[in-house]
């Protein structure tokens, strides 16, 4: 019981951290054409995420692995029910991963243009699909004793799509702020400008999402029964406003930090509303996958808790150290002079 709750929290933390970290990679990538106007600028952009993107993506593998280990039934049904959507996500992530490594390996205009397109698609598609997937999970999947009654098209319902757009905008603002912090000159200014332009749109979509959530999901039930939880969405909105406040004063790092918090708290808002469900059934609550009916045995959860409490802090420590090593902004001169860069 205790361990199931611990793993529910860890599950939420893993997804939140994944979206916070890969969010700026996805956001920068889906704005690849908007932010990078020349080949030099695009190389700079790729090099801002070069040392860290793979390590960020591992949070997804860990979230997936943790779902498998802690809630195997949820892992099995989520992945098989959302088969085609996950397949498209997988293809996009595969294309994205190789495009960073391969783009700079051949000096040819067409080659680079091809991989530029791959970077755009490989980041835009996952950003959208993650949103659509989580929107549908928040709303519940049509499943009962007979199995799953949904389809790829059914996932593209208005609420799913709205969540998709919300994710795309969250990541776009996040990514452009990251680019603004990690570059200099024109590129940095352009990125900050894009973030400033997108922010009001994000605000509108976020408000629409919060309102629609009332009708499309049961996420607010938990907040009504335990109002103390409301601190999470309130802080999420505060962080969202914080982005604007910092950005308006030209404090880009502060704006980026606020955007990190926004993503963490938005995901936390959704996950706290789900509890104790992992995937609700939209047909009959009796068939919802909860942390109680889909979890591993207490023994396995205990083992996994020990593993997580030993290794996750170590991971966080060396990740912070590496981020510090690469904290300086990337410049065009540096990228052009460095044969080791992407």
């Amino acid at each position: 019981m205790v361990f199931q709750v611990i793993w529910f929290i860890l599950w939420g933390v893993l997804w939140s951290v994944y979206f916070m970290l890969d969010g700026f990679v996805l956001g920068e990538g889906l704005l690849h054409y908007v932010l990078g106007k020349t080949d030099g600028e695009r190389r700079v952009l790729i090099n801002t995420i070069g040392p860290v993107w793979d390590g960020n993506e591992v949070w997804l593998l860990t979230a997936g692995g943790a779902t498998f280990a802690a809630f195997p039934t949820t892992y099995a049904l989520m992945f098989s029910y959302l088969y085609t959507a996950l397949l498209l996500l997988l293809f996009a992530l595969i294309i994205r991963g190789v495009s960073y490594e391969f783009r700079g390996k051949v000096e040819n205009e067409g080659w680079k243009k091809g991989w530029d397109a791959a970077i755009f698609v490989g980041n835009f598609v996952p950003a959208l699909l993650f949103g659509v997937a989580f929107g549908n999970i928040f709303a519940g999947l049509p499943m009962d004793a007979a199995g799953y009654h949904g389809s790829l098209l059914a996932l593209l319902n208005p609420y799913g799509l709205l969540t998709g757009v919300l994710f795309v905008l969250l990541f776009a603002v996040h990514g452009s702020l990251y680019a603004a912090v990690k570059t200099r000159g024109d590129l940095s200014a352009r990125a900050a400008g894009v973030a400033a332009k997108l922010w009001p749109v994000l605000l509108v979509v976020a408000v629409a999402f919060l309102a629609y959530t009332k009708f499309a999901t049961h996420l607010y039930d938990n907040y009504l029964s335990s109002p103390v939880l409301l601190i999470i969405p309130v802080l999420a909105v505060a962080a969202l406003l914080g982005i604007r406040l910092f950005a308006a004063r030209g404090e880009l790092l502060g704006a980026f930090a606020a955007s990190c918090l926004t993503i963490l708290l938005v995901v936390a808002t959704g996950v706290a509303g789900l509890f104790p469900n992992l995937i609700p059934s939209s047909l009959d609550p009796a068939y919802s996958l909860t942390i109680f009916n889909s979890s591993s045995s207490a023994y396995t959860l205990k083992i996994m808790t020990v593993v997580a409490f030993i290794f996750v802090p170590i991971v966080i420590a060396y990740k912070i150290w590496v981020y510090r090593v690469f904290r300086a902004p990337v410049t065009v001169e540096e990228v052009l002079g460095d044969r080791q860069a992407y």
């Binding site: 591992v58 593998l61 860990t62 997936g64 692995g65 943790a66 498998f68 280990a69 802690a70 195997p72 039934t73 892992y75 099995a76 591993s296 045995s297 396995t300 083992i303 996994m304 593993v307 997580a308 290794f311 996750v312 991971v315």
Partner: peptide, 13 residues
């Protein structure tokens, strides 16, 4: 999954 998931999650972490 009660057994097989653990090594996969440990591998990732």
């Amino acid at each position: 999954g009660d057994i097989f998931g653990a090594p996969l999650a440990i591998e990732a972490t």
